[in-house]
Design a protein around this nucleic acid. Structure first.
Lengths: 213, 213
DNA sequence: TATTGTGAAGCCTTTCACAGCA
DNA sequence: TGCTGTGAAAGGCTTCACAATA
């Protein structure tokens, strides 16, 4: 297929296909059709094929896709065929939950640093939960440590009032990717990427749907 | 404006407008134009006006919108003008972080029950964090307690392998809204609503953008 | 024969541009 | 005058339908 701009929705779906394919691979399934994958991910089969078409041809006509190969191709496309080094900023309840989030390990995401405005306060909380505790450092050390430890993604888990200023610190430290868990939208300059998780918006959405349908 | 189907994207944006308006209201700002609100929420001004137009006319030509009134209207539209009673299922690190998540209080969301497959294991973890601890109950009591406490939204904070079966339990208990934090898509029958938070997909998205731009 | 890859149609969302109005 | 409300245009994404082919 000819080259063109790739829809953001396609990238989001690739991530979902990847998860499904991992499950299939674990179950030793070897081949999958676009229709099967589509059902599993609740999308249209043509959509699945078109999503892949942005990046090349991965299937065999009359057969389908080889699970292992397709999974590897998708991971390569998403940039998941290598380790990503991350830092958590804000080691409150949410931050410490993220520090011990087991799913990161399987997915090549690695938390290599943790920061807080009061590191002494939270040390117990972290070490009690982790087999191999990550030392909690003062945020003032963010810039230096980010360089040292080659941090590429910063996870903001502070209260909303501090989210933007932490984002600014991350930008200053040249941490190019930011995942924000605070219930507020953050802004970053060109060359940087920020994603807001905004799960409270998902709750608002539920409230709306429950009220109106 | 004539009645028509409301885009899901509009509902998501209403939730963002609501947050921005709350901030403005706290700063005692009384009037806001669609252009100002648009800038603050990183959208187009015509988009803001069109979003509102689905539900009626809220502004004054030549002036703008009264912050307080608009905020109340949006909250009413979203169904946020009343309390929502929620339960958390799975009191691991993430679950207990949610139990003490302060932002819920401000937003009329109230956690009135917590469940786990091993309630005794997690009691310490919860009570240590909450001023007024929510007792952790065994999941087998979900159906009865959901009725008793009028639970309308269930928050799944279990490992991914158990997410769908917990969703099934919630459906059986007639808890109509589900917010799923496990990194897997869950399915529910008609009449029920489920939203997956999938923050690992947001990370994948970051990885993609950092790799390709 | 079964399923992929894809041009074209259809649908939905966003943006423009300006009439309408306080 | 300045900003809202909205019809129409533009743009983008999804789905259809079928040619291509292992």
């Amino acid at each position: 297929m000819k080259y063109s701009k790739i829809p953001e929705a396609t990238i989001r779906r690739l991530s979902r296909y990847s998860r499904c394919l991992e499950e299939m691979d674990e179950k030793r399934e070897e081949v999958v059709s676009s229709a099967q994958l589509a059902t599993k991910c609740s999308v249209n089969a043509a959509q699945v094929r078109k999503d892949f078409a942005y990046f090349g041809e991965f299937g065999i006509r009359g057969v389908g896709y080889y699970v292992k190969d397709l999974l590897q191709d998708i991971k390569r496309i998403l940039g998941l065929n290598r380790e990503w080094r991350m830092a958590v900023i804000g080691v409150g309840n949410l931050g410490s939950a993220l520090l011990s989030y087991k799913d990161f390990l399987k997915q090549n995401y690695k938390i290599v640093a943790a920061f807080d405005i009061n590191p002494l306060m939270v040390i117990g909380r972290v070490s009690e939960k982790l087999g191999k505790p990550v030392e909690v450092l003062h945020v003032s050390r963010l810039k230096d440590v980010a360089k040292e430890r080659k941090i590429e993604i910063g996870i903001i888990a502070t209260p909303p009032s501090q989210a933007q200023s932490v984002a600014d610190l991350l930008v200053e430290a040249e941490v190019r990717g930011i995942l924000n868990f605070a219930p507020t939208q953050i802004k970053v300059p060109k060359g940087y990427v920020a994603k807001d998780v905004l799960f409270t918006n998902a709750l608002d959405n539920l409230a709306y749907l429950l009220t109106n349908y």
